[in-house]
Every structure is written in structure tokens, then in C-alpha cells.
Design a protein around this nucleic acid. Structure first.
Length: 541
DNA sequence: AACCAGGAATGCT
DNA sequence: AGCATTCCTGGTT
């Protein structure tokens, strides 16, 4: 576990035994030793097997990669990187080195390259390690890495834990000590892959401030659910962002040979797996997903199991998306004309919320653990998928989180999402006018699916997707919770769409925001600026 | 004109 | 009851 000096996490580490907070595998990469970073891209390629099978990205202007003595092997989350309001969302679409033809080399949408992204991560790794080392030397802050390395209470789900880590960190800060134990216990309670039918138990502690919890008391399963759904959201966000970076489909089965290669490279780099014998993975995605874990290991003795686990997460995420899309489609078919469900494509994907529901079921009813006691979370989710029940699924989803109270089409490629957003907006406009005609003087009845989310949660949801909504709303000072609505009309439209309120406008939306002043959810900014608002601290995190 | 601020009534869950 | 919506008046940029 990397404990950051001078951070809230550090102070918590002094209070909570790290093994209780997070099991070791969550924080530690399989190959945890810091390795020498290549100073140039050519070095990197050579370092990883001579270049022909590895990434060859022409660095802008022939520059070399900024030199860093070391970079840690810790997985870095692209979403957290993107959420920095100062940076343009990196959107690298299949540039030439990933196996495309020359005509595609100009398909870089934003001013960033895959290699630049990797280097930014590398730079951050370097700073992390440097800080760590400095504080180790000064011994002013206790670093608990050694202790953690010795304690490995649960080796299963290492990859999933890595994925959960960024969100967990967020909640460490948000909820201080208490939730750390909750998530840590929940993850610790995951049964190892080898142990089937092991019951999970999630220990909870009463939080110090219920206002942190969007869905009520975190001591309840529902409160935990709302938080865990965010964690799952993080997993999906990682998939989504990787799709954008690599320009691959979220469905691994659709990957081409080049897609497979790009994903392997990316994943091996992210997880610091070392050289991957790509020639042994010269196959399409459909073949790749059919490989067993043993085959992965045999083809890539170093990191094959990690790759398999990572791919398993992708596969499960995609299965969840498909199930969500099917459920949404089915719901649309049975709905009345007056109650047209809103199928949203521009909202965060909560595809793995069924996995979460599995956790929640466990906490709510330990008398029926069999539904969730399969050998691991992923298979648990697949188990749920095998029995698709739109009613139960939607009810579970609705209870999980305000972020997951909507349906999701989920069956589209990431590359076409933006187009669909625009199309949906047009549809929304048409639907709005027709709804007005339908309902006459009566205000439209909000869809139950979209009526539970709070405005402040919705705004944070938009803020968490700068790549999609950055032109409409963005952070000005994320730490202090200051954000600006750049396009008031669009934000109001999105809010109206979510709440199925076609008549929503910014005037009404801003009135709702102003209600938050009295409730302590938001506050007026120090310097009054138009369209600039600020979350109060607990809500800003 | 667009936005800000807040009171009041109303509807929904 | 709590929250959001709707409508309103008046002020500010």
C-alpha cells in the first residue's frame, strides 16, 4: 500500500491497521519492484523486446520521453487523470503505431498522444516514489509498506482491487476513517478465487456525518450500496477511458488483432507486467476471450494471470452492459406512451451494479448467501446475468445509488457515443414537444427511474465526465468544489432529461441550486461570479 | 438579455 | 417531511 505523506490517507494510516483498511493485494501490483524507466520511446521498445512487437508511437516533434529515474508499478487511473480540470481530455484514436494505416495518424482528437499519457503517468509515479522515499528517510511519517507486504490475508481479486483503489482512495478522504473500514472489510471479505461458497461479511461502522451519504445511512446496506456503486462506476470508467485511449470497442470479442495487441500493451504497461510475448497473442478478440487462465499463463508466464483477470473484468463489464441494454429495451417495450423511459447514453455506466447488488444482498440477507457466494465477484455478476430479471435488476439498481437509477443503452461502441448523445438530444427535443402536446396543461409525470437522483449528485456526475460534458460544466477548483456551468442551457436540458422534465430550464435549475445554500450542500463563492457555484466541503470531495 | 436571489405554492415520493 | 419544480418579484451584470 502506498501511503502518501501529508495526505488524509496518511493520517488515517496511523489510525487504522492497513491490513484492516485494505488487504495488501488491492494496493500492490504483482510485480511490485520499481523498475528502470526508459528515457526514450526507443529505449522502451527495446527494453520490451526489440520494438517490433511493441509500441512504436512517433513522439511529437521527435522529442524524447522526459527522463525519470524510476516509475512505480502502481496502477494509475486514467479517469482521475482526466478529471483534472486543467487538462484537456486525452482522446487518442488509433494512431499509426497501434496498427492502423497512415491515413489514421491524424485522428488525434485532442492534443495528446498515447505516449504522452504514458509519460504523464510515469512522471506521477516518479513523484510518488520520490515523496515516499523522502519521507521514509526523514522518518517523520510512518510508512506502512513493509507491514503490508508481509500481510497478505487474501490474494484473490488482485486486479479488481487495483481497479477499486482510486475510488476507495476517494472515499477514504470523503468519509475519513469509518468508510475505510467498510470498503476494506468488504473487499477483504471477498472470497478468494479458489474458495467457492464462502460467505461474505461486510462490517460497518457508524459514520460521523450522515450527510456524506447520498442515499442515507451508510450503516445500512443501502448507504453502503450507494458508495460501492461509485466504486463500480470507477471500474467502468477505467474500461471506458481505456477504450477512448486505445480506440477499441468495450466488447473484447470485437477486437481485431491490432486491438488485442494495443490492449495487451496498454495493460502490461499499466500493470507493469514486463514484456509480453505478443506473438503468442496474435489473435482476434473473440479468440482471446476464449482463452483459459491456464492458456494465458502458458503464453505469458510473466503476468498472464494478471492479463486474464483484467480481461475478465472487461468481459464482465461488457456482459453487464449488454444485460442493462436488454433490460432497458424490454422496459421500453412494455411501457405506456405516457411513461416513456429515458434511455440515456451520456450518463456514466453502472454496468456492474448487479455485482454490487450481489454484495448488498449479502449484507441484507445473510440467510441467502448462495446467490453471491460464487467463487469470485466476476462470476457472481455473470451468475446474475445468467438469470436476467428486469424487474429485480431495475429495483436493485434503483436502490443502489442515485448514480445508477437510470437505464443505459450500453450496447454501443464508445466511439459512437458522442454521435448518439447528439441524436438523443434531438430525440429529447422532439420528445419534449410531443410530451407537452400529450400532457396538455399537466406537467409530465417523472419517470421513477430518473426521479431519485439529487441535483447536486447529478451535477457531480456531469463534472466527473469532463470528456463528455466538459464543455457544459467543469471544475474550476476541484479541491474546493468550485465549478462553473459553461452552458447553462445544456446543463438544464440534461437535468430535465434525467428527471423527465421537458420544461426544465436554467432558471429553475438555478433555483434548485440556491436551495442548497440553506441546506449546506452548496455555498456562495467568495467572489460572486456568474454561473460559478461551490459545493460545501463534504460534498466537494 | 441573462443571471442572481429568495419567497411561496405545489407536486411527488 | 424532504426535495424539486414552478412561478413570481426584484435586483444585478
Amino acid at each position: 500500500m502506498l501511503v502518501y505523506p501529508h495526505s488524509p490517507i496518511d493520517s488515517m494510516a496511523q489510525l487504522v491497521p492497513c491490513s484492516a483498511a485494505f488487504p495488501q493485494p488491492l494496493m500492490q501490483q504483482p510485480n511490485s519492484a520499481a523498475i528502470q524507466a526508459p528515457s526514450t520511446l526507443a529505449d522502451f521498445n527495446q527494453h520490451n523486446g526489440g520494438g517490433q512487437n511493441f509500441l512504436e508511437v512517433p513522439y511529437a516533434g521527435g522529442q524524447t520521453v522526459p527522463s525519470s529515474p524510476t516509475f512505480s508499478t502502481r496502477n494509475y487511473s486514467p479517469p482521475s487523470y482526466w478529471s483534472d480540470y486543467n487538462r484537456s481530455p486525452p482522446m487518442v484514436i488509433k494512431s499509426e503505431p497501434l496498427g492502423c494505416n497512415n491515413s489514421q495518424t491524424d485522428e488525434i482528437v485532442a492534443a495528446s498522444s498515447l505516449e504522452e499519457l504514458l509519460d504523464d503517468y510515469t512522471f506521477d509515479y516518479y513523484n510518488d516514489i520520490k515523496d515516499l522515499e523522502e519521507n521514509n528517510n526523514s522518518s517523520s511519517k510512518p510508512i506502512t509498506i513493509k507491514q503490508e507486504e508481509q500481510q497478505q490475508p487474501n490474494q484473490g481479486h488482485a486486479l479488481l482491487r487495483q481497479c477499486l483503489r482510486p475510488a476507495a482512495d476517494d472515499y477514504q478522504q470523503r468519509c475519513h476513517l469509518q468508510f475505510l473500514n467498510q470498503i476494506g472489510s468488504a473487499i477483504a471479505a471477498l472470497p478468494p478465487a479458489q474458495h467457492q461458497h464462502q460467505e461474505m461479511s461486510i462490517k460497518t461502522e457508524k459514520p460521523s456525518n450522515a450527510a456524506y451519504w447520498p442515499n442515507g445511512n451508510p450503516n445500512s446496506a443501502q448507504g453502503l450500496a450507494s458508495v460501492l456503486s461509485l466504486v463500480m462506476e470507477q471500474v467502468n470508467e477505467e474500461v471506458r477511458s481505456t477504450c477512448e485511449i486505445l480506440g477499441v470497442s468495450p466488447n473484447p470479442s470485437q477486437w481485431s488483432v491490432d486491438d488485442v495487441r494495443a490492449w495487451l500493451l496498454w495493460t502490461s504497461r499499466q500493470c507493469a507486467l514486463g514484456p509480453i510475448p505478443l506473438e503468442r497473442f496474435h489473435m482476434e478478440g473473440a479468440v482471446l476471450v476464449a482463452l483459459t487462465e491456464e492458456e494465458f499463463r502458458s503464453r505469458a508466464p510473466q503476468g498472464g494471470d494478471t492479463l486474464y483477470a483484467k480481461l475478465d473484468i472487461w468481459r464482465s463489464a461488457w456482459n453487464q452492459r449488454s444485460a442493462a441494454a436488454a433490460a432497458a429495451s424490454k422496459a421500453a417495450n412494455v411501457s405506456t406512451p405516457q411513461m416513456v423511459p429515458t434511455i440515456q447514453v451520456d450518463e456514466p455506466c453502472t454496468d456492474m451494479s448487479d455485482l454490487l447488488a450481489c454484495w448488498i444482498n449479502t449484507t441484507q440477507d445473510l440467510q441467502q448467501p448462495q446467490q453471491c457466494s460464487s467463487n469470485n465477484m466476476l462470476s457472481a455478476g455473470q451468475h446474475l446475468l445468467a438469470v436476467p430479471s428486469p424487474a429485480s435488476t431495475s429495483s436493485q439498481r434503483g436502490a443502489l445509488s442515485p448514480y445508477s437509477d437510470h437505464t443505459h443503452s450500453g450496447s454501443e461502441d464508445m466511439a459512437s457515443e458522442m454521435e448518439e448523445i447528439e441524436e438523443e438530444e434531438e430525440d429529447e427535443e422532439r420528445a419534449g414537444s410531443s410530451a407537452s402536446c400529450r400532457t396538455g396543461q399537466t406537467a409530465p409525470t417523472p419517470s421513477p427511474n430518473g426521479s431519485h437522483i439529487h441535483l447536486w449528485q447529478f451535477l457531480k456526475e456531469l463534472l466527473s465526465q469532463p470528456a463528455v460534458h466538459g464543455s457544459a460544466i467543469r471544475w474550476l477548483d476541484r479541491q474546493r468544489g468550485v465549478f462553473k456551468i459553461e452552458d447553462s442551457v445544456r446543463v438544464a436540458k440534461l437535468w430535465g432529461k434525467r428527471k423527465n422534465r421537458p420544461a426544465m430550464n436554467y432558471d429553475k435549475l438555478s433555483r434548485s441550486i440556491r436551495q442548497y445554500y440553506r441546506k449546506g450542500i452548496m455555498k456562495k463563492t467568495e467572489r460572486s461570479q456568474r454561473l460559478v457555484y461551490q459545493f460545501c466541503q463534504p460534498y466537494a470531495l
